[in-house]
Design a protein around this nucleic acid. Structure first.
Lengths: 338, 338
DNA sequence: CTGAAAGCGCTAACAT
DNA sequence: ATGTTAGCGCTTTCAG
């Protein structure tokens, strides 16, 4: 058994390299003004000792963590993963790392998470959605770091926003169907208000149907958000049985829409001729499946890159006023609903 | 403009509550021995001031961060997301948070990432896979924290292991096909060795075919890992054109397998009668799509929970020797290959 | 380009 | 149950 010798610290490296700790500190920074020879001998010494820079001490003294905190409803979601990828790409150039937490579509959990994250002293915080508990809102308002709400257009934003109107996006889909002469349109979504984006999409559906003077009551509750492919399939089964004259269905996400599609295939119900199906999100499956899925692309990667750019500007002092950056989701008409 | 008043610190809370900072510190701990009345007045004072506990200072002084560092190849992957979910569930009870990084299937990136993560002084580190650059290996060996390699059975483990043999899992699939009388079997996978699990699966395919005395050269390179649905579809197109007598195809993942399936559908090629298709991973789509996909379930969630349990034991001092926990992937025979 | 002194905000260790 | 003292390992600040 090796004696757990104490891990080397900067002073050890300094001693071995024959310089002061301060010079070692500078050698480990990008901009540190240290002669090339000195830096090299310091890095060699560090390597020889197996020294690993201690960010916890650096964080405390410099009051910088190079963290950006991010909350997402779920990590297992291709859309949010795309946003994270965009965010991470944009932040990487400034050496900012993402400190990630997921809320499981639960505002109380979000509140706990935000508090945990703020304790780590991130440089900025990004949250998904624009609805929060009162205390969560207060925590974010008082954090005195840049706050970005994404994937939504909150009625009263806390700070910056990079998002879009989920309701308006679905309205566009309803309009498209109506223009094609379809009127008996259903909506498959979650049965709870946990997922605020899903709730907004359903509200957008109802409002749009009413605006067209159409029946807005063909609402199928598919389960607790997030709705899986299987739940989408089950919901489609119920729809076909209870409202068999339905001509089109809009699903809260591509996953549920794909599930709905498979249910039609298993029952021999033709899509789109017998019933048109649309999803939301433009997941990869939407463009691959047969028939390919009509959907809405909310440009999740762009949400990430724009959020990153916003944060870099805010941290660089180039922004003072809160920015509201509106993303325009694209309606993608494919084979499942023409 | 509000004067950016300095954020309150523990001493401010102590003053307002009329106690010493040490008592405030205790009030913020779970086990802190503080009278209920005192704790309440402290929490009230903290709330009034908008105090947020500073984990950076706590980390430095206590030499504890409550972080577990985790690297995954990609964040947008349902399998790794399941492992993360299991891990996160298991670690939550001890208040351990996950510090996540992704390597983009690149060992050089993994090395950079591991060094970044170790600087933050995690209590333990979990990596996906058992192949690393030499320096990355050294970093992990010298970290003097529990190290867990997952999703693989490394030839010479660094520390603990929770994984399975990707090669053996694919061998099981080949054996199944051969037992069914299929002999002209192809493999669709990545064209580079970036994804070591993918490479192991292909190696397992080749070895198994040779063991059966069969032609192991029907290898279709589908692109740079990770292989998308679209790349799976394109690869299937090439397979059908160049080796039209192929009876079965094993794909490196369910996503590429599903893509392959859709290509067959678009071309009117019957699955499984004309060609059988199998995937890997048991993603949700595998059980939903039509026909449903024969695949291998590597129990990703279980990998996460077992890794978490291992870490808790190791941190609790209940483990000394490195543990090798072998997961047994399950062969799931579905409609796409019977 | 390099160094010395001081201290970031908490908590371990020791008291009472 | 609560308080006092010291210090975690860096980097800010000020010198040279």
């Amino acid at each position: 058994m090796i004696p757990p010798r104490k891990a080397p610290i900067m002073a050890d490296v300094a001693r071995l390299a024959g310089v002061s700790p301060m010079t070692v500190s500078r050698a480990f920074k990008r901009d540190g003004s240290v002669s090339d020879a000195t830096r090299q001998s310091i890095l060699d010494a560090a390597d020889r000792l197996g020294y690993v820079f201690d960010a916890t001490a650096s964080n405390l003294r410099s009051q910088r963590t190079d963290f950006v905190a991010v909350t997402v409803p779920s990590i297992n979601n291709a859309n949010f993963a795309e946003t994270l990828r965009g965010l991470s790409e944009g932040l990487k150039e400034r050496g900012l790392q993402i400190l990630l937490g997921y809320t499981n579509y639960d505002m109380a959990e979000e509140e706990r998470l935000v508090e945990q994250l703020l304790r780590r002293r991130p440089e900025a915080i990004v949250v998904t959605g624009g609805k929060h508990t009162d205390r969560c809102r207060r925590l974010l308002e008082n954090a005195s770091i840049p706050v970005v709400e994404t994937w939504d257009l909150p009625a009263s934003p806390i700070g910056h926003v990079v998002g879009f109107s989920n309701a308006a996006a679905v309205r566009g889909m309803v309009d498209h169907f109506v223009a094609r002469g379809l009127t008996r349109i259903a909506f498959i979504g979650g049965d709870a208000d946990r997922d605020t984006r899903g709730t907004d999409r359903r509200a957008g559906f109802i409002a749009a149907m009413k605006a067209h003077g159409l029946d807005a009551t063909r609402l199928i509750a598919a389960g607790t958000p997030p709705i899986s492919m299987r739940e989408g399939a089950q919901a489609m089964g119920r729809l076909l049985e209870t409202l068999p004259d339905t001509e089109a269905v809009i699903c809260v996400s591509d996953l549920s829409a794909y599930g709905a599609l498979t249910e039609c295939q298993r029952r021999g119900v033709d899509v789109p001729d017998r019933i048109a199906v649309a999803g939301f999100g433009d997941y990869e499956i939407a463009s691959i499946c047969v028939p390919s899925l009509t959907t809405i692309d909310p440009h999740p990667h762009r949400i990430g890159t724009q959020t990153a750019a916003l944060i870099l500007n805010a941290l660089g002092g180039r922004i003072t006023a809160p920015a509201i950056e509106q993303i325009s989701p694209a309606l993608l008409i494919r084979e499942s609903a023409r």
